[in-house]
Design a protein around this nucleic acid. Structure first.
Lengths: 339, 339
DNA sequence: AACGCTAATCTAAACGTTTCGATAGTGTCA
DNA sequence: TGACACTATCGAAACGTTTAGATTAGCGTT
């Protein structure tokens, strides 16, 4: 900018005024300055600007796994929304690991992001401090956080799973296996509650051996399913509370020589784009990813626009049960096949 | 830092020296400073540091679509690699749009990223200028760029498709539909070449009506497939050169009342995690996403480490044909079913 | 002709670091 | 006792912006 000012024989203040439109500058000088800018190929240094202004027009976004199609979709929507608003987004994947998450968030705050959207992991002790200490607005995505009272957009997980399990019960299923992620994050807890309530509402017992938990990965779903399928009185249906894990479930069913839905019905959380193309077409609980991403972005953009003092807003969206052909109605007798 | 210096009764220079370990500071002062840092909860301002140092320890990454599983996987790997190296990554999705890409890259350069990994879109006129003007290292990902001579990691697309088509020919297929993306990017061009060469090598003609092109989206794959299937002498196999488009292909096959692989064989580019779980299990060309991401990251990290003058390095990796059950061997007579 | 008002422009300080060169303190050795 | 080397510390400039406040010029009023 100094060079531009010199070339145009004006002060840097005038150049700045013209670029930002913060003061009127005469047509004559404007022209000289614009010419100089073109000649020199000047580009404003956003870092220097950020330092002075105290804002980076950059936000941080952390998710557990970008390869989880749910997060992929949400990240995509959020990225688009901030792009439209002229913000850059720094993406971090925490790999479902608390320490990684701490590091990532520190990394983002170090870089003076203007705001944070966090699909948290673990118990959020650090998050509490961040929301308290750092003066950047935070919006929680997908997962709430005890003790952190801030903007959030989540799903009505309990209701969504309640509906899905009720659907299975209505089909005649009585023993329904349930595969959950580690229960220290709110959605897993709420989904589990939905499962239990649906069973109770139908007068069915919650059998401990039918509930298995894993760490969100395909292999965990595989192992959990193997355990469920080797029970002497095995479930006629399995619900997986997490998307990547259901892949493991399907592989386990295949490896053990059973097939879905003939031998065992399967449903899961989170829809994916190809779910109605391949067989079996999985019955899923679809989250409104578009809305989730947009609402999260809007909440943050609103704070960034200056609305700092409004009380925390918590948006709860509804899931939708996508009924396909991976769950079959059950007659009086549970079919018993061996491979 | 000023506050820390005052609290510890030292100069800011000393604080900086201690934090960065750039000079020895006495145990006594060290302790005072560390105490002050803790008391105040001081965090170094990375923006100010960037301004002074001329480096942001942040890189920019642009991909056409993060929802394309290939890019999802590569982004994930790259993100991890840079995370390990202490870099942040700014992610942008260009939506296969040239203007968007220009905007995004400008946005990234404005923010003084230290380097750029670009899966480009379009003809790259802007990219040329960037690589010339900006002094940040750029590595091209997945897609080369005429006239931009810089580090790159790509697949041997031609060979990969050659192998896939040859496989179909070996199965007895003679009329093989081919669905490509817009041909102005190198992989699409190379894949097309692989298709033609495989046919020629087998003494088969390249029939114009069997080649359809679209804009990478599911709907384009759908439309292209519909056209192929309504030919009076329709193909017995379809190869889709792009992953999202194959979803459209499968939907079109279903909607028209055919089934795969009984009525029509399907293969495509890019593997996905669930491809061996659902039916039909698609035969795909798998890209080594892990290697691609890591190599791209390494190339850039190497430049960032100071190795600026080395000549451009172009890494070409091999694809792998994952044979599953979506392509069936063909007898002498092409089966002709109507739904 | 002196005055005030407005519009255009400029000067200079500030943002929070890093770093160069200066300075003070300490011990060694002739 | 100086001269000297060495270490620890500091002062101040610099990075490239923004912006408050000062200055200047032009112009209409009285």
């Amino acid at each position: 900018m100094l060079h531009v000012a010199e070339a145009a024989r004006v002060s840097v203040a005038t150049v700045s005024a013209l670029i930002n439109g913060t003061a009127t500058v005469s047509p004559e000088l404007s022209q000289r300055i614009e010419q100089a800018i073109r000649d020199i190929g000047y580009k404003r240094n956003a870092i220097a600007r950020s330092l002075k202004m105290g804002t980076t027009r950059t936000i941080g976004l952390t998710v557990p796994h970008i390869t989880n199609p749910f997060f992929t979709a949400v990240v995509s929507v959020i990225q688009q929304a901030f792009d439209r608003a002229g913000y850059a987004v720094m993406l971090c994947c925490t790999d479902e690991d608390l320490n990684t998450q701490d590091d990532q968030i520190r990394l983002l705050l170090d870089r003076m992001v203007d705001g944070l959207i966090v699909a948290r992991v673990g118990d959020g002790a650090i998050l509490e401090r961040i929301v308290a200490d750092a003066n950047v607005p935070v919006v929680l995505l997908d997962r709430l956080c005890e003790g952190v009272d801030t903007d959030a957009v989540v799903l009505d997980n309990q209701r969504a799973v309640f509906d899905a399990i009720t659907y299975l019960i209505d089909l005649g299923h009585r023993r329904i296996g349930y595969i959950t992620g580690t229960s220290d994050i709110s959605p897993m807890h709420d989904r589990m509650t939905g499962y239990c309530e649906a069973l109770q509402a139908a007068g069915l017992p919650v059998a401990e051996e039918l509930v298995r938990s894993g760490n969100f990965h395909e292999i965990d779903g595989y192992n959990a399913t193997m355990q469920l399928l080797s029970l002497h009185d095995r479930p006629s249906a399995i619900f997986s509370a997490n998307n990547p894990m259901v892949i493991g479930t399907m592989k386990a069913i295949r490896d053990i020589g059973l097939s879905c839905p003939e031998d065992i019905s399967v449903a899961c959380f989170d829809d994916f784009p190809w779910s109605d193309v391949f067989q079996p077409q999985l019955t899923t609980v679809a989250q409104p990813v578009q809305a989730i991403g947009e609402q999260a972005a809007n909440l943050l953009l609103d704070r960034l626009a200056g609305n700092r003092d409004a009380p925390p807003r918590k948006l709860v969206l509804k899931g939708r049960l996508m009924i396909r052909n991976s769950c079959r109605p059950l007659g009086a007798v549970v079919q018993s096949l061996s491979a």
